[in-house]
Nucleic acid binder design. Structure first.
Lengths: 239, 239
DNA sequence: CGAAGCATTGAAGTGCGTCAACAATCGTGG
DNA sequence: CCACGATTGTTGACGCACTTCAATGCTTCG
């Protein structure tokens, strides 16, 4: 199951069999968690990091009035809290949006791996940086794009990210979020998120039913979103 | 001048004289740049990273219609594009908001430093992660806070960050941004940014004139902002 | 000292929020 | 397998925070 993560790493560098083994061995345990649980609570001290092997997670920050913002969605292959390895506590919760399977990697193991295999340290650092590029793009969306464009952008991004790890169909992917959760990604109310989806449907751009999102007009959607996958850094990088 | 950067690092770990020397030697050149220049353009290939020694920089992303979002402000001591070291090209511009003095560190030097001094690699990784925490907080602001709260939050954050590097007075700091730039940080129009400042002034929370921001009621401002400096990770971390 | 940028103000418009109700679907236990 | 409560999705009416447009004074700096 860790394969999905290894494949993600291989998009950046070749993995030696030794490096691959080190990562496989680092996963001391896999754990199943149900939807709508808090996997990591903001501020708690961390001794392990979690690789998401199946399902959807989100980083979540909330305000006193109970409103929350979902900062970044994670899909299979993603390290959910690699930043926890250096920070030791997080400024946000990590919550499950669907049933999940996660791999547990103790920080000592990460420590060993990164000391012993500088190339792996480098890829992981690099992935942390690509993660924050996603957050930057979100800030651009929240600050400057309209509701319609923002939602279109999110769908474009998710398609590309899922496709990159082999979790997307020709023009669709499983999308487990409720409209409430979707609205929390986009900084909208549920009501307006609902109306925005309907507008995308009305324009013949997407279908969304029974947790399945189908993109009917990819370039139309990308146009509205002003989507450019550049920020996802999906191409192999020079080492 | 690199001292301000070294001091920032010392907030996280002790620096050995050898480590300090390595960083000092890595700065092969310092460069003066005037306000409103593009220091790094999105997509261009990078061979060096820049430490900001004096002045203000911002990461900036823009949309086709010319609207732009300032994603993160940088002040003295910050590494402006440490993520460029692993990513080799950026998904955003880096622009000057005031006259600046920057230190140039070639990537080869960074490579040597991080290989030779794993603790430094670790602090730099850690700072990259703290950087993205700031971007996350921005996403929370843009998604969930009102204009007033957002602006209050930005002022609280900047005070704390500047204070941490000794660039703030008892209750004030130099703030070189125009209202247009401020509005671009907050995802607002200039007009509304202006009205929002006036509301903060009217409530006796801040003064802003001749590029100087004075906080008259710190706890009042923090209250409106729901500001909690936790996400800035200013305390020394366990290594 | 004049031009260009910057701050401020007013009036009017709109995208999204709020409130409230109802319909559809889901999950669970009997 | 159906019943039923709870969650999720949808719709309408109305309100407001922020935008848009446009004009005017204020700085700043060559």
């Amino acid at each position: 199951m860790i394969t999905v993560h290894l494949n993600k790493l291989r998009r950046r560098i070749e993995l030696s069999t030794e490096e691959e083994r080190a990562i496989r061995d680092a996963v001391v345990e896999t754990r199943k968690i149900r939807a709508d649980e808090v996997l990591i609570r903001s501020g708690e001290e961390l001794k392990s990091s979690f690789v998401l092997l199946e399902g959807w997670l989100a980083r979540s920050k909330d305000l006193a009035d109970g409103e929350r913002q979902l900062i970044e969605l994670h899909v299979a292959g993603d390290f959910a809290d690699l930043h926890g390895f250096t920070l030791k506590r997080l400024d946000h919760d990590v919550v499950t949006l669907s049933d999940c399977l996660i791999g547990v990697i103790p920080h000592e193991r990460l420590q060993e791996i990164t000391e012993r295999y500088p190339r792996l340290a480098w890829v992981y650092w690099s992935y942390s940086n690509a993660d924050s590029a996603i957050t930057r793009e979100l800030a651009l969306s929240l600050g400057q794009r309209s509701a319609l464009s923002r939602m279109a952008h999110l769908f474009c991004e998710l398609y590309v990210r899922l496709d990159a790890v082999g979790r997307a169909g020709a023009d669709s992917f499983g999308f487990p979020l409720t409209q409430r959760e979707l609205s929390e990604c986009l900084g909208l109310t549920v009501v307006h998120a609902n109306r925005t989806i309907q507008e995308l449907r009305r324009r013949g751009l997407v279908e969304l039913e029974s947790k399945q999102l189908r993109i009917l007009d990819r370039s139309g959607l990308e146009g509205i979103a002003q989507f450019d996958p550049y920020y996802l850094y999906l191409n192999r990088l020079p080492v």
